[in-house]
């Protein structure tokens, strides 16, 4: 186990369970996210990652369990918490019929960003897309719109950021740039990030700590290095495949004992 993290806990789930028609998409899922920490949520398709994020954003109510952000119960303080958080996913979009700057200006106003125009310009520069500001949002390529979504997600200087597959559909070059930007901003501002991805490069480079979910349950947890060591794998990809197929990582020493 890693040494206890003494940083402030900004997001915590206790025994979070979410059923859909009797099937548990999340099964007593508990975790803590600290300020300035990037926590990766991994697992096969349908493992429950998006469900977890939706519960944490207050979009889906949990069947049971407790959620807290910044030390306050999520549902009673949803608006207050959302002011300090943000979200981006490859599966949502900003209104396609508006220009990029129009969309960003609307969200900057919603979040009450001081000097919105300047802030937007800074973030567009940071993500290396200043040339996109007068483009029609709906005509952007997938990679371009992902980066515009990230600008939206950084607008309110969130302390807590949820990114659901932010690098899906990005080419390796852009994915690399996005990872570096996320990491840079995250370090500078000490943002806590919950990050899901199917791209193991992402996880290895960006995440401080990883949780593997399988059918809604945590099957293992730790830094990428610890997890690889524990399962005697050379890469997270191997760990991922083992978990997806067997539902657990069987520790090699135990396997030897058994045989």
């Amino acid at each position: 186990m890693a040494a206890a993290d003494t940083r402030e806990v900004i997001l915590e789930a206790r025994e979070l369970t979410r059923e859909f028609d009797g099937v548990k998409a999340l099964d007593r899922f508990s975790f803590k996210l600290h300020r300035g920490e990037v926590l990766g949520l991994l697992g096969a398709n349908g493992a429950g990652k998006t469900t977890a994020m939706n519960c944490l954003l207050g979009l889906t109510l949990p069947t049971s369990g407790e959620l807290e952000a910044f030390g306050k119960p999520l549902h009673a303080h949803r608006i207050e918490i959302l002011r300090r958080a943000n979200f981006s996913s490859a599966y949502t979009a900003l209104p396609g019929n508006l220009l990029v700057w129009q969309n960003l200006l609307v969200f900057a106003r919603i979040y009450g960003v001081p000097n919105p125009k300047q802030k937007i310009a800074e973030l567009l520069d940071l993500l290396e897309i200043p040339h996109l500001d007068k483009r029609v949002t709906g005509q952007l390529s997938a990679g371009e719109s992902t980066r515009v979504n990230l600008v939206k997600a950084f607008l309110n200087d969130p302390e807590l950021l949820m990114l659901d597959e932010p690098t899906a559909s990005l080419d390796p070059d852009i994915a690399d740039k996005v990872r570096k930007v996320v990491r840079k901003v995250q370090r500078e501002r000490s943002i806590g990030i919950l990050y899901t991805s199917h791209n193991m490069r992402d996880i290895e480079e960006v995440c401080d700590r990883v949780i593997f979910l399988h059918k809604g349950k945590i099957v293992c947890e730790g830094t990428p290095a610890q997890i690889m060591a524990r399962s005697s794998s050379n890469s997270l990809e191997d760990v991922f495949i083992k978990i997806a197929r067997d539902g657990e990582i069987v520790d090699e020493p135990e396997k030897e004992k058994a045989s």
Binding site: L57, I79, E80, L82, A85, F87, L94
Partner: peptide, 18 residues
Amino acid sequence: LEDVWTRNLLNVFVAPVR
């Protein structure tokens, strides 16, 4: 419906909008 059609609903619901 505009928000639904443009897949913007989630952005609005995760923003601090009552």
